Structures are given as C-alpha cells and as structure tokens.
Amino acid sequence: KQVQVGDEKYTFDTPEEARKFAEKVAKEKNLKVTEKNGNFHVE
C-alpha cells in the first residue's frame, strides 16, 4: 500500500501501517487523509 504526501510516495506492507503513517503525517502537517483505490493520500 502506498501513502502519497505531496510528490513523495511511501510504500508499506499492510494497509494498517500505511494508514497509521498517513494519519501521523496529516496530524503533523495539519492536513487530511483521503483513501483512493486502497492507497492513502495526505493533502
């Protein structure tokens, strides 16, 4: 599963790991997490 933050992409083995990372980054940057096709976008 992938997490996209701006132009950066991070790959994780499980959706749970990806979601945790996305939520942590979103909180730090005051952004929101959206899920698209099983991948997460922080925007």
Rank of each mutant, 00 (worst) to 15 (best):
K24E: 13
N30Q: 09
Q2Y: 15
K36M: 12
H41P: 05
Q2G: 08
V33R: 01
K27S: 11
F12A: 02
K29S: 09
Y10F: 13
V33M: 09
T34V: 14
T11G: 06
E43A: 10
K20Q: 13
G6Y: 07
E43G: 14
Y10G: 01
E8F: 13
T11L: 13
P15F: 13
V33D: 03
N30M: 08
V3T: 02
T14D: 13
Y10T: 02
A22W: 05
K1P: 14
K27L: 13
V5A: 03
V25S: 03
F12Y: 02
F21D: 05
E17M: 07
A22P: 05
E16M: 06
K9M: 14
E8W: 11
F21V: 05
V42G: 04
L31M: 15
T11F: 14
Y10I: 05
T14H: 03
F40K: 04
K29E: 10
K1Q: 09
K36G: 06
V42F: 06
V3L: 02
K20V: 07
E17D: 11
V3Q: 01
T11K: 07
T34A: 08
K1S: 15
D7Q: 10
N30K: 08
F12M: 01
E8H: 13
P15R: 13
K36P: 03
F12R: 00
P15Q: 13
F21R: 04
T11V: 13
V3M: 02
K29W: 04
R19S: 06
K9G: 06
H41G: 06
K32S: 12
Q2I: 15
K36R: 14
V5G: 02
T11Q: 11
A18H: 01
N30Y: 06
F12S: 02
T34G: 06
F21N: 05
K20W: 07
K20F: 07
D7F: 08
R19A: 07
N30A: 08
E35R: 08
D7P: 08
E16I: 05
E16P: 00
V25P: 00
E17W: 01
N30G: 15
K20S: 12
V25T: 08
K24S: 12
K36W: 08
T14P: 00
P15T: 14
N37E: 10
E43I: 13
F21A: 06
G38S: 02
V42I: 09
V25R: 00
E28H: 06
E28R: 05
V3I: 03
K36E: 11
G38Y: 00
K29V: 05
K24N: 11
A18G: 02
V5E: 03
H41F: 15
F12N: 01
R19F: 08
K9L: 15
E17N: 07
N39L: 07
L31T: 08
T14S: 12
T34H: 11
G6F: 10
E16F: 03
F40L: 13
A22H: 01
E17F: 01
V25N: 01
N37P: 00
T14K: 02
E35S: 08
K29F: 08
H41Q: 12
H41N: 08
E16V: 05
F40E: 05
V42Q: 04
F40N: 04
E8G: 04
E16A: 08
K1I: 15
Q2D: 09
D7I: 06
K20Y: 07
K27I: 11
E28V: 07
P15H: 14
D7G: 10
E23D: 10
K32W: 07
F40W: 11
K9F: 14
E23S: 00
H41V: 15
E23Y: 05
F40D: 06
A18M: 01
K36H: 13
Q4A: 08
K9V: 15
H41I: 15
E35F: 09
K1C: 15
R19I: 08
E17T: 03
E8C: 15
D7L: 10
K20D: 14
K32A: 11
K27R: 11
E17Q: 10
F12E: 02
Y10N: 02
P15C: 14
N37G: 09
P15I: 14
K24H: 11
K27Y: 10
V5I: 13
F12T: 01
E8K: 14
G6W: 06
K24L: 11
K24Y: 06
K1V: 15
N37H: 06
T11M: 12
V42E: 04
N30V: 04
E43V: 13
N39T: 11
E43L: 10
K20C: 12
K24I: 10
N30H: 11
F12L: 01
E16Y: 03
K32G: 09
N37V: 00
V33K: 03
E43H: 10
